[in-house]
Each structure stands twice: as structure tokens, then as C-alpha cells.
Design a protein around this nucleic acid. Structure first.
Length: 205
DNA sequence: ACCCAGGTGGCCC
DNA sequence: GGGCCACATGGG
């Protein structure tokens, strides 16, 4: 039998860390409230090239302002208030525009966040990728952690790990995504846990 | 005073 | 297809 480096890496990390980091346990759970799912989706945009610590401040500001809602953000008339609330997360002007574009897309195309959840991964992923400010990593993070869809997330940490372990020569997004998915059972919880473990492992270095 | 953080889009070659 | 830049704040 051909040995599977990707899957054995998952087992190794699972053995080493078990249940993972501070905010991951609730993300890596399949039963999440609608509010938490929206927080995760918005957080996925806010965390682009940004420390989680700063993102938390922005999310708390949104929560206090009762604006941690995709439908509310999608219906905003102007973005000044939103920009101000998310300032701690950096790139706040461009991120306010990205949040708004994402949220208004959902409102227009699906009517509500709840209806979006029912959409199929095959349809949804290409749709998300057409939205301004949603690249492959943000799309996959939203799909995997906010919507529990089986798509593997590739980020800078994953690339670093692949390089360290010499799992692949190419480091392009789609190539690595296929590599992981090809060598793992299709399982949302496993994808969630594995990606979280990679981040935790790489952060320690 | 630097340097970096769970990216993305625009522009150039 | 790949390389470089702007985008901005807070923490080490």
C-alpha cells in the first residue's frame, strides 16, 4: 500500500496537540449558532493579513454596535460607521468595502444568511470567488468554518508546513488544495481540525 | 524604531 | 503564470 504522507501528518499532529487552541474549538464544531457562523464569516475577511488579536477587537466593536450581522451590514447605506468600528483590524477602508460587498451579495442573491447555508459547495465556491475581496483562502475559510462545507483551506502556515515536510514541490493554492483533498477522506470535521492543527503547530515556531 | 500578521486586487512583464 | 505594490492597525 502506498503510504499517505498527508494523512499521517494529520494523525501525528492530532496525537501531538489533541484539542486545539483558544478560538478553534468552537469553529471546529459542526453545531454552531447562526450568530457564530456569521461572526466566523465576517472574521474570515477581517483576518486577511492581520493578527487575530486585532480582529477580535474589531469583532467586539461590531458586537457592541449590534452590527455583527450579515444582513445588517448588507443593507448599510454608507460605510463610515463600519469603517470606524473595524479600525483595529487594519486596512479598515478596504475591509469595510469587502465586508459590505460580501454581505450585500448574500442579501441580494439569497435573501438571508440562513438560505445561503443550504446552497451546495459546488455552486457556492465559484460564486464566492467572484466577489470583490474574496480570494481562495477567504472563500474556503468561510465555506469550511462558517458553513461546514468540505473544502480544504490553504494558508501561509500550510505552505510553510508543506515546504518544511517537503510534501510538494509546487506551492500554488489550487495545487495544494487538491493535494490535501486527494489524500484525505471527505470529512468536514477532519478538514477543520487539520487546518487548525497546522496553524497551532506553525505558530509555535 | 523596526517587523510582522490566518490576503487580495491591480499592474507589469 | 509569477513578482511587486498598496492597503493600516496594534503588539513584540
Amino acid at each position: 500500500m502506498k503510504k499517505n504522507n498527508v494523512y499521517s501528518l494529520y494523525l501525528k499532529l492530532m496525537k501531538k496537540y489533541g484539542r486545539v487552541g483558544k478560538w478553534w474549538p468552537e469553529w471546529c464544531c459542526l453545531k454552531k449558532s447562526l450568530n457564530l457562523r456569521q461572526e466566523i464569516a465576517l472574521g474570515a475577511i477581517l483576518t486577511q493579513q492581520t493578527n487575530w488579536h486585532n480582529v477580535e477587537k474589531a469583532l467586539n466593536n461590531l458586537k457592541k454596535a449590534k452590527l455583527l450581522s450579515i444582513e445588517k451590514i448588507g443593507r448599510l447605506k454608507n460605510l463610515a460607521k463600519l469603517e470606524n468600528l473595524i479600525k483595529p483590524s487594519g486596512f479598515y477602508r478596504i475591509k469595510a468595502k469587502r465586508l459590505y460587498t460580501f454581505c450585500s451579495f448574500i442579501v441580494k442573491q439569497y435573501g438571508s444568511f440562513k438560505k445561503l447555508m443550504k446552497q451546495d459547495l459546488i455552486i457556492l465556491r465559484p460564486q464566492l470567488l467572484t466577489i470583490y475581496g474574496i480570494g481562495p483562502e477567504t472563500a474556503d475559510s468561510i465555506l469550511l468554518y462558517a458553513l461546514d462545507k468540505p473544502t480544504f483551506v490553504i494558508d501561509e502556515y500550510t505552505k510553510r508546513l508543506v515546504k518544511q515536510k517537503k510534501l510538494a514541490k509546487k506551492l500554488s493554492y489550487d495545487y495544494l488544495k487538491k493535494l490535501f483533498e486527494k489524500n484525505l477522506p471527505v470529512n468536514v470535521k477532519l478538514y477543520q481540525d487539520f487546518h487548525a492543527l497546522i496553524v497551532v503547530d506553525q505558530k509555535k515556531k
